[in-house]
Amino acid sequence: MITIEGLQKHYGEIKAVDGIDLEIQDGEIFGLLGPNGAGKTTTISMISGVLRPDSGRITFDGLNIWVEPKKVKRNLGVVPQEIAVYEDLTAKDNLDFWGSLHGLRGPGLKTAVHSALERVGLQDRAKDRVKTFSGGMKRRLNLCMGLLHRPKYLLLDEPTVGIDPQARLAILDIVREVAVAGTTVLYTTHYMEEAQELCDRIAIIDHGQILTIGTLEALTRQSGESEVLKVVGSFDETAANQRLSGLPGLRLIRVEEGTVLAGIDATGPGLLEILPQVLESGLSIDDVSIQKPNLQSVFISLTGRELRD
């Protein structure tokens, strides 16, 4: 189990991570979801023993990574956001080096390298220099380096940034396989779909703080909304507030010129009654879209902003 208590990191006046507490159970895929700049990378850097926290405690099965770093890191695999591989070495050279750092040698290292390359589909390119790889292949090799020594804990920091959908699916499949084999996975992302598809539990982070934690079902239920309405038209903020704020069962999440985001209360009159009232509110409406509650709507209801903002 990974336990994080009171984690804090400040850069001058900026609170990058502001008192995070988490418990990640053995064998689960735990997602840390948040927009860019929310504090995900700072958090994972501290958890992986690279960045020293200002305060707080991080333990892996009771071992504090900042007290016994080498012991913990032997069981830790990290896939950083950057593609951190030596491009002038071959894929095999990179893995040989990485495996040797984790104490693998001889036939054990050879077998581990072979099976890791096979797992990410790079066995045919083992002897090619990484600089000849596509972006997706480099990402897979990056992942491979984290998996090579079959770690008990795997920390992935936005491992699918900047790659094509096919490579992304391949990486997600590998993460699932690893978790099924018993590895505890901490996965940070700003892609809502990835968190929804992959993670057993999700923590939503913004401005260095955990806003909520739970399963996908629990989080969407927690928002208390059955649907989310997005209304787009030619109206100003004041008019929208005046016309829509009094409607029963409708909770305004965000109102700005030309756009309104509003949640339909699960216990209220329901969409079929509220939608006509919205359309007849007198606002000049061009488009209305209806979403089922998801992490996006949860995030919106918690922060008033969309994940991509």
Binding site: G49, K70, R74, L76, V78, P80, E82, A84, L101
Partner: peptide, 14 residues
Amino acid sequence: ESGLVRHLLTAPVS
């Protein structure tokens, strides 16, 4: 600059 040091420090390397 490329993040290789940060990655290296996630291994049992001080």
